[in-house]
């Protein structure tokens, strides 16, 4: 079910979520966030799905450049010719 996270405390928490998930939030802030999460189901869902989102894109295989790109690049830059 869709509903906006709109409560004042929730909005304040939202601003610090990246720091929290990156382990960069101060200990006191972490404790405050965790206290809030224990009582706020909406924010818990946002935190869990945000963490999962980060996990998914960080484990996404990177796109590979075309195999011919190196040869074409060296040719365009005239690096495939013998030095004068």
């Amino acid at each position: 079910m869709d509903a906006a996270v709109s409560h004042h405390t929730c909005k304040e928490l939202l601003v610090s979520l990246s720091d929290y998930l990156d382990g960069e939030a101060a200990e006191a802030l972490c404790a405050e966030i965790e206290r809030h999460l224990a009582d706020c189901e909406d924010c818990r869902v946002v935190v869990d799905t945000l963490r999962k989102t980060i996990l998914l894109y960080r484990t996404l295989p990177p796109p590979s450049p075309p195999q011919t790109i190196r040869a074409r690049l060296l040719h365009a830059l005239e690096l495939d010719k013998d030095a004068p």
């Binding site: 996270v5 709109s6 869902v45 869990d48 999962k52």
Partner: peptide, 17 residues
């Protein structure tokens, strides 16, 4: 971005991801 999607989809089996 204010979150409006509040369904917990983390329960999906890992293979679905």
């Amino acid at each position: 971005t204010t979150p409006v999607q509040l369904f917990d989809w983390c329960c999906l089996p890992e293979e679905d991801f």
